[in-house]
Design a protein around this nucleic acid. Structure first.
Lengths: 181, 181
DNA sequence: TGATATATTCGGCATTATCCGAATATACTG
DNA sequence: CAGTATATTCGGATAATGCCGAATATATCA
């Protein structure tokens, strides 16, 4: 007699538990501007004991292979999943979930935010050059606003530099100190 | 003889400078998952000396009033703009840009992220209940993963609490210390 | 309350995003 | 290098979003 005879609802309860978390991950994906399918695919990898292949994911998710393929590429760019190859498995790609969201966030800062900040700063500098030396009240007021924004972006830049080079533990300890102060 | 005779390109240079910044703001909006129009509308407010009415914004942006109206509501929810009424102006609403992105970020943490974290934690707890006491290897492994995630979300929660209650200056000072350590 | 100025909502059209299956490209193996 | 297993790309169907103008709702003031 096997498990399911002995305790007929084990599988169902396990299934329910996972489904609960997968749903939450779909919602989370939505909040951060990703499509729900990404949340579900991430969740499947999150619960996997071993890296999953594209075909594994296709089977479990019931999405088309093309869908899973592009999703994996996006999730990889976001550092939410990692791609590995396994010796002896040929071209086959395997994916696993990154479970430490802090490093995911750090990578987002490094790649997306940092790039936004840099291009904004370049634009602000160009705008400043256009206005510099203009004998015009309106121009002076614009200039002041632009410089203020530029200062804020400078501070953001250093903040990003610090955040992307600190472990979460280090940061958490420091913030703990802040709370007590 | 007026300004434009004396220095014919003042207006154009001012225009160019603003357009440079507005473009950058449209790109930034895109990066953070908003539509470009939001970036432009925010930019118009950013440069305004005084609060602007819906009709002002319609005129300057050349979007339809309905578009501007819904955009203002969204930007308001994100705390990127503030709505004010002006005594003696009746029902008319006036908008101004929030120039401190740190408070914008704080509000986003408070409203969106905090909510995501809370519902995820609730889901994780429900999932844990489903699995608790199950005599099943797979269930135990799932349980361990869920608990690990739960611990991470707990830490996130306190991090959010701290971040949403500290001024940028305070935080920046602290992080400066971190850098030197 | 009625008149007026303003804001919001709604249906529709155009654009974009998602997802699919088929076709193509790519990497590995013998 | 041919053959095979795998991944990616592409065109098309469907759903979602952005934007509009007209219709409706709401707030203020006489």
């Amino acid at each position: 007699m096997d498990d399911s005879d002995q305790e007929p609802d084990i599988d169902e309860r396990r299934e329910r538990a996972r489904e609960e978390v997968l749903d939450a991950m779909e919602r989370a994906a939505e909040i951060y501007g990703l499509s729900r399918s990404y949340g579900r695919l991430y969740g499947l990898l999150f619960f996997a004991e071993e890296p999953m292949s594209l075909d594994d994911l296709v089977e479990r998710s019931e999405y088309a292979k093309s869908t899973v393929s592009t999703a994996m590429n996006s999730l990889q760019r976001l550092h939410l999943v990692h791609r590995r190859s396994i010796p002896g498995e040929g071209k086959k790609a395997f994916y696993e979930a990154e479970r430490d969201f802090w490093t995911v966030f750090q990578e987002f800062l490094r790649r997306e935010v940092r790039r936004e900040v840099d291009t904004m700063i370049r634009s602000l500098d160009r705008a400043e050059q256009h206005l510099d030396g203009l004998d015009d009240e309106q121009a002076q007021r614009d200039l002041e606003k632009i410089r203020q924004l530029r200062r804020m972006y400078d501070r953001s830049q250093s903040l990003i530099d610090i955040l992307t080079s600190s472990s979460l533990d280090r940061l958490a300890g420091l913030l703990e100190r802040l709370r007590r102060d």
